[in-house]
Design a protein around this nucleic acid. Structure first.
Lengths: 359, 359
DNA sequence: TTGAAAGCGATACCAT
DNA sequence: ATGGTATCGCTTTCAA
């Protein structure tokens, strides 16, 4: 029925071993022989049997990419970049791999389940993207699972989340604290003093780090500083989605109608905040930008103050992809060998303000 | 080193065959025996070797999802829904499959390359999403490739693109013509008469169908009808991204400054149009919505006229996922067997108008 | 209900 | 440079 290596070998009048060598290009093969084999492959329309190959070689060319929410362009861009970096046209050896994008929905079980699925597939590498849960129990389970994976030869890349103790992994770090801090400093610089904060879901590294950055900026400026718990009162947690951003803005304005600005923990949340502000007839600044907008010159020009905070997200993803390809053992926990850029500077953080500084 | 079926069998004091039966649940096994096996699996922390299993069974539990642009939330939502429908918690038999999201970038080669990669993996199914290229040569190549896949037992699902002659595939159809037509009718209803159109890339099914719908509405209303080529003059083609939307709006306004509205071929393009309008100080209507906004009540309320055009995108994706799981041979080319909903009604189409009806 | 054994298709070591 | 072949881990008849 389906064409196998043996069929090709027969047609090319060589052994199966030779065909394998030609196809993998790992061993020297006479040019004439190679030609004969390649022609047979073409004529028979032969396609390698991946499973068989993976079984024999004890490794597959699958690379798992775990994302918290594939519907969020943030992860879409990262996943796309990883896929591009490891895919067909990938530079050097190790290319031609297939990205398996797994949507965990941010749930701990989802994360573990998909890792098991990938482990089962003997994935060449797994890339965990986005903030991690800070629950000790889950962290332990995750670390254990990842340890097993690395033992089995699977490379682990952490992109946008902190290193895991005891896990040999390459990591692409985002400066969540610094980014959030600069964001709030920007608002303070505009004259805002009563600033609300639409935070991410509790218990996530990104949520905590960004909130810390936000508060550091407030503290440095002496804002909210007097009354205890004032910062808490002006902070509302929620999922990283529009609906939550909308709800957060409503709640924040209910608690403190005198708010002049609201900082959001990420782009998607900012979109929700925007909608809430518009509903109330509040002015929404044009400089609310969205992940991915950076390919639009006009959008960039509109937010000069934030330009430096911007992260070429796609490049971070590509870097993660390259790290996934790198030979195991190369520069773990930090960056890696050839062609690897230093850890990326800052996470993209965008805010929506009510645009009434001093009001 | 790594635990195998044989290890589990030994520990449970049964044969490998029995372990396999327990794990796959296809054959009857004594309850006591099953327990013993499952305990051994747990104790040894055994994980099936996917490649070996796929090799023996001649099929894998991978489902390929081809998307034109993973960074576009439209595809993110669809891909996520497919993944959810076939994944861990999938109903009935056939669940527990792994979605492999492949970003073709809308290129014909990418499409073919990924299909080969999936063919090599012996994918259980492939889901092609989004508009298709109308190039006869590529269509033929694609049809041939898909034919080979189905022959090998891979199910093919077309989601958002027309059926392919000679290819046994399930299809989830979007009413691109109808959606676009209603969109333009909406604008006409608001009093607009000089309407620009930011179309998608030339040569795509979605581009053509939506444009046809748009023009049908214009023709029915007698708008643009008099002068020949007027509709062409007010149409600008471009990629399905913001940058192109921005460029299209600029060009349209250059050609006809008297424009009172611009209809965009999709959400992402509409966002770009929006930016261009804002740059010019033109009023941007609040009812410009974005794919995925439908989970935000306020957004829905803002666009009553479009509510009926809205497609629960995630549901279309889930449907496609279910079709991917269905037994081969079940109701091809149209819809399918158990639990399958009828083809979805309408594609989500959003527009941006300059908000100056009659101006 | 369970076991034994023959593949599945490619890889890589050992010869030649 | 090329061929023979054991091996990878699981599935699936065929018997018992």
């Amino acid at each position: 029925m389906t064409v196998t290596l043996a069929d090709v070998a027969a047609r090319a009048r060589v052994s199966a071993a030779t065909v394998s060598r030609v196809l993998n290009g790992n061993y020297p093969v006479a040019a004439a022989t190679r030609e004969r084999v390649l022609r047979a492959v073409r004529e028979l329309d032969y396609v390698v049997n991946g499973p068989a190959s993976s079984l024999a070689a004890a490794t597959s060319d699958l690379v798992g990419v775990l994302v918290n929410d594939i519907a969020d362009p943030f992860f879409g861009i990262v996943a796309g970049a990883v896929g591009g970096a490891i895919g067909a046209g990938a530079p050097g050896r190790g290319g031609g791999k297939l990205a398996v994008v797994c949507n965990t929905g941010g749930s701990p079980e989802g994360e573990l389940t998909y890792l098991t699925l990938l482990q089962r597939q003997r994935a060449a590498a797994v890339v965990l993207t986005g903030g991690a849960l800070e629950d000790p129990e889950h962290t332990a389970a995750l670390a254990a699972k990842l340890a097993r994976l690395t033992e089995a030869g699977t490379r682990v890349v952490l992109c946008g989340r902190p290193p895991l103790p005891g896990v040999r992994a390459a990591v692409v770090a985002f400066d969540n604290r610094g980014g959030a801090r600069r964001l709030t400093e920007h608002l303070l610089g505009l004259g805002h003093r009563r600033i609300g904060y639409a935070a991410g879901p509790p218990g996530r590294t990104t949520t905590r780090h960004r909130l810390e950055g936000h508060r550091a900026a407030l503290a440095a400026a002496g804002a909210h500083a007097g009354r205890d718990g004032e910062a808490d009162r002006l902070t509302v947690y929620g999922a990283y989605d529009r609906r939550a951003g909308h709800a957060a803005a409503c709640e924040l304005l209910r608690r403190e109608p005198g708010l002049t600005a609201i900082a959001a923990a990420n782009d998607t949340v900012a979109l929700g905040v925007r909608v809430a502000l518009r509903e109330r007839g509040l002015r929404v600044p044009e400089d609310v930008s969205v992940t991915g907008f950076d390919d639009l010159p006009c959008a960039l020009d509109a937010v000069p103050a934030l330009t430096t905070v911007r992260l070429p997200l796609a490049e971070a993803g590509a870097l993660a992809g390259r790290l996934a390809l790198a030979a195991p053992g190369a520069g773990e926990s930090g960056e890696s060998g050839p062609g690897a850029a230093p850890p990326v500077g800052a996470e993209l953080v965008v805010r929506a303000s009510t645009g009434r500084p001093g009001a």
